[in-house]
């Protein structure tokens, strides 16, 4: 499969999915105008990757601000990963937060509560 890349913009993150390693990295802020339209192609891409390969998947989230629409879209991404993990796939999620930004930590903690896949909270500037 090809890589998936979207350049960062003011209100949307850089998206970098390396198909050779299975690392999907989102970096920046996320409050695009039509949040669902922004994330739909990424969800479709991840679904195809899960359907056609057996590589481990690591979702690396380095998001300093997300709007509520993005919360919903990330939950949809997590659902795909949970389902894949249930089918025996090696998956993991890393949530980076700036230690000075306690809201970003709280958001990560709320995500972690409901997930079965490994979810690391990493307090480190990015």
């Amino acid at each position: 499969m090809n890589n998936y890349y979207v350049e960062p913009r003011k209100s949307s993150p850089e998206v970098n999915f390396d198909a050779s390693t299975g690392v999907l990295r989102l970096t920046g802020e996320s409050y695009p105008e039509n949040t669902f339209d922004f994330y739909a192609p990424l969800l479709a891409w991840l679904q195809e990757f899960l359907d056609t390969t057996s590589l481990p998947v690591r979702l690396v989230l380095q998001l300093s601000y997300i709007n509520t629409g993005t919360v919903k879209c990330l939950l949809d991404l997590f659902d795909l990963l949970e389902e894949a993990a249930g089918n025996g796939r090696n998956v993991g999620i890393a949530w980076y937060y700036d230690p000075a930004n306690e809201r970003a930590l709280e958001t990560g903690e709320e995500f972690a509560e409901d997930l079965k896949v490994p979810f690391e909270l990493i307090g480190e500037k990015f």
């Binding site: 409050y31 105008e33 601000y65 709007n67 509520t68 930004n101 306690e102 809201r103 970003a104």
Partner: peptide, 19 residues
């Protein structure tokens, strides 16, 4: 920073609701 982020996110949610 928590207050700053809260003000910013209330602003974003209000304005995106209008859009």
């Amino acid at each position: 920073s928590a207050v700053l982020m809260d003000v910013f996110s209330v602003y974003i949610e209000q304005t995106q609701n209008i859009r």
